Computed example of a mutant assay.
Amino acid sequence: MYTVWNTEIYCRVNDIYTYYSFFNKLVNEYDYNAKDLWLYLDRIKTFEAVEDMSFLIRELCDYANMMNQLSSKYDKYPRHFLTTHKIACRNYNRMKKEFSEELFKKRINKQYECSFGDYIFIYPDSTQDIKDEATMQNNCVASYIDKVIDGECHILFLRKRNKPDESLVTIEVRNNHIVQARRRFNDDVTAEDQKTIDAFNKKFANKEDKAA
């Protein structure tokens, strides 16, 4: 009993040490707000049914470490953390890849930048812009950078005119036609989004891709 009791105490003390060690790392190294972080961990523990708080904070620290290396624009407090962390792990190696900015810039086609009502289409200026989009949208658009460089497609960002820096819909264009459009977590677009997409396709129908 003495040995078992000591083992249980050791494990509990170790868990507490682990928790505060990673908590402090998130605050001091990744600029998390201590109060917001505490409330976030408590909410995720409750709504995602995580019983081991030490496990949860280690996973969050791992997520912050990966995302911080790829883009400063990541969501520090994702609503669905466990799903977001899985997506981040899947995309991490893809997004670490270095690409030729010179080749990418040759593919940039600013003719696609246009606006319809409250929406604007933005062409990324660099491969990092696409990595930022992947991070903010929690999707795999970074894996399309090679396709852009190879001339297979274009990637555009559909955003609200009054919020041009806020990710909304990630767009894939082939042969002057939008073939794929997804919101965050690859959710479907709204009816309003679709009207704008249809207007884009109508505008560029039968036009030649000048960057092809």
Rank of each mutant, 00 (worst) to 15 (best):
Y2V: 08
V4T: 13
V4F: 13
T7F: 05
E8V: 14
Y10M: 11
C11G: 02
C11M: 15
N14I: 00
Y17K: 15
T18M: 08
T18F: 04
Y19I: 09
Y19T: 08
N24G: 05
K25T: 13
K25G: 00
V27P: 04
N28H: 10
N28M: 02
N28C: 04
Y30E: 03
D31V: 08
N33H: 11
A34D: 12
A34F: 04
W38I: 09
L39Q: 14
D42S: 13
E48P: 09
E48G: 06
A49D: 14
V50M: 06
M53T: 14
F55Q: 10
E59N: 02
L60D: 05
C61M: 06
D62E: 12
Y63G: 03
A64G: 03
N65V: 11
M67T: 03
S72G: 06
K73R: 15
P78T: 07
H85T: 01
K86A: 14
C89E: 15
C89D: 12
R90Q: 12
Y92Q: 09
N93G: 03
K96H: 12
E98T: 14
E98A: 13
F104R: 01
K105H: 07
I108S: 07
I108G: 04
I108F: 07
K110V: 14
K110T: 12
E113A: 05
F116L: 10
G117P: 09
D118K: 15
I120T: 11
I120E: 14
F121P: 06
I122H: 06
I122Q: 09
P124A: 10
D125C: 03
S126M: 09
S126P: 09
D129A: 11
I130F: 03
D132H: 08
V141H: 05
Y144A: 13
I145G: 06
D146I: 01
D150H: 08
E152I: 04
C153V: 07
I155Q: 00
I155R: 00
I155D: 01
L156M: 10
L156W: 01
R159S: 03
R159W: 02
P164Y: 04
D165V: 02
E166W: 01
V169A: 02
R174Q: 14
N175R: 08
N176P: 00
V179Y: 05
A181V: 05
R183N: 10
R184S: 08
R184Y: 01
F185I: 08
D187Y: 08
A191C: 03
A191L: 11
E192S: 15
Q194Y: 08
D198C: 05
A199T: 02
A199S: 15
K203R: 15
N206V: 02
K207F: 02
D209M: 00
K210S: 10
